[in-house]
């Protein structure tokens, strides 16, 4: 039983990153119809930003500095999202999907080079917050409190996004755009501004996920690739543009991976794709897609 608690917690921890990353991807895809291949690079910016801040200033008060680093990562990635949207994404709205893929892939390469120019090609370590938070004892097992911290932050971020999307005027307008873009325009919604905002919000969530991961793994070039691939699986599973879909998709992928590694280690990744295939065959629009 204790082992099962740990397996479930492992799944929740991994699902947290997937949720934050795929939520951003899903908002961008749902509201703007843009398939953003550079989303993993925005995750990487958050990771490098946080690792750099914690590494440079976190010796004395790592938790306080880490909280500042989380906010900074969120802000810088969000800002980068705004810049991307206004400069190279905006002319792509009316273009075919292949143009979007091409331009966002170009953005991915551009951001990777930008990271290399800013932080160099070496690893950044920021493990202090993970080290000092200590562990929770569960029977014969121990579980790092930092992992629970990540789950908590993700829940808070998820509630925040839900609140914005469900209860605020901006959120209602964003949902209107995602449902029917032309009708929303006809109703006088300023689509251009809201597109920029949605892209910035999605980017900021990716940056937050990146920042949360660096206390347990060094920030390295290419750190955003794994989350990007996983986030695509989640978005496809959960359905495009759906907050609920991102949440359920992330939970399915996180828990399947966690339990799959324990019992079927040779097919860790194929298992996820198998589930994706089954869901897509039975429900092509994803679990909560329209």
């Amino acid at each position: 039983m204790e082992n099962w608690i740990i397996y479930i917690l492992n799944g929740l921890y991994f699902a947290s990153f997937l949720f934050l990353t795929s939520l951003g991807l899903s908002i961008i895809l749902g509201v703007m119809g843009i398939l953003n291949l550079a989303h993993g690079s925005l995750f990487a910016i958050g990771a490098f930003m946080a690792a750099w801040i914690v590494g440079a200033f976190g010796a004395k008060a790592p938790i306080t500095i880490f909280v500042i680093a989380l906010l900074a990562a969120l802000g810088v990635s969000g800002l980068m999202g705004l810049l991307l949207e206004t400069s190279i994404i905006r002319p792509m709205y009316q273009r075919a999907l292949e143009y979007q893929l091409l331009i966002t892939f170009g953005a991915l390469l551009l951001i990777e080079d930008l990271i290399k120019m800013t932080w160099g090609g070496t690893a950044y370590y920021a493990s202090k917050p993970f080290d000092i938070m200590g562990n929770l004892v569960i029977g014969n097992n121990q579980y790092p409190l930092y992992f629970l911290f990540v789950i908590l932050i993700t829940i808070m971020a998820g509630i925040g996004v839900w609140f914005i999307m469900s209860k605020t005027r901006i959120g209602i307008m964003l949902r209107a755009i995602s449902m029917d873009r032309e009708m929303a325009r006809a109703m006088g919604i300023r689509i251009r501004k809201l597109n920029t905002l949605a892209f910035g919000m999605g980017a900021a969530l990716a940056g937050l996920a990146g920042a949360l991961i660096v206390p347990t793994t060094p920030a390295l070039l290419g750190i955003g690739m794994e989350p990007l691939i996983m986030a695509f699986i989640v978005v496809v599973l959960g359905g495009l543009g759906s907050l609920k879909g991102a949440l359920v998709g992330a939970l399915i992928v996180g828990e399947t991976r966690s339990i799959g590694i324990v019992f079927f280690p040779e097919i860790e990744l194929p298992l996820l794709f198998l589930i994706a295939v089954i869901i897509l065959v039975s429900k092509p629009q994803g679990l909560f897609g329209r």
Partner: peptide
């Protein structure tokens, strides 16, 4: 008793570690 094959550049080993402990 167990042989695990994580992908290169995996960022989360928690499930692997649990499997190894188990």
């Amino acid at each position: 008793v167990k042989a695990l094959w994580p992908k290169l550049f995996t960022t989360d080993y928690t499930a692997h570690i649990s499997a190894l402990i188990g």
